[in-house]
């Protein structure tokens, strides 16, 4: 997810104003936009709102993007910025309903999901963004720093804090979470 190399021709064409390429690009980025927003906002409707706004910004401004190689960082920045704006306006206080996310998902997975989202909810929004960008989008601290507009050291600090808190919270919730999902075998 961190690499957008396979999408370079589509990004180039979208930058050049080709409608079909832009549509294909939006279809490709949509699930990532939604999931990153979901990890920050923990509410499907708010996440959909943030993802749609980020995609609208991509459509409106991709022509001005300086290079296709910069797309990944730029796109994630739009998603995180929009999610943080929604979070500031109306922070999600309610616990996420895992059944509202994917009805086809088996119940055990839904329970795992609920535990993890509950643990994420303990973190400040900025730390949730760092965690999602690192663990889900596979970005390094330099790229995350660029996205958040903070020094790299600050990102590493937030990541370390978030990791410690999540590890302790998820270890405490061990009975509800299948070991093969959460814990390394060794």
């Amino acid at each position: 997810m961190g690499s957008w190399e396979s999408h370079q021709p589509t990004i180039d064409a979208a930058r050049a104003g080709e409608g079909a390429a832009l549509e294909a690009l939006i279809s490709a980025i949509w699930p990532h936009a939604f999931r990153i927003a979901l990890s920050i906002l923990r509410h499907p409707m708010a996440a959909e709102d943030a993802a749609q706004e980020a995609c609208a910004r991509v459509v409106a401004a991709i022509g001005g993007l300086r290079s296709s190689a910069a797309f990944g960082v730029w796109f994630y920045r739009l998603v995180v910025r929009e999610s943080m704006r929604i979070e500031r306006r109306a922070p999600a206080h309610e616990v996420l309903d895992p059944n509202a996310l994917a009805s086809a998902t088996p119940l055990t997975d839904a329970l795992v999901r609920a535990d993890i989202f509950r643990a994420l909810g303990v973190l400040p929004a900025r730390q949730r963004a760092v965690v999602a960008l690192h663990y889900y989008a596979d970005l390094n601290s330099r790229e995350i720093a660029e996205i958040l507009g903070t020094p790299e050291g600050t990102v590493r600090y937030h990541l370390s804090l978030a990791r410690r808190r999540l590890e302790s919270l998820l270890s405490a919730h061990r009975p509800a979470v299948p070991a093969e999902v959460l814990f390394d075998a060794g």
């Binding site: 279809s27 663990y135 998820l170 959460l182």
Partner: peptide, 22 residues
């Protein structure tokens, strides 16, 4: 035992995105 955060988050976020409404 260390917690596999990457695996946990990937599992948690492995959800179907709502249909894209262009």
């Amino acid at each position: 035992m260390p917690v596999d955060l990457r695996g946990a988050l990937r599992t948690a976020l492995d959800v179907d995105a709502p249909p894209l409404q262009l």
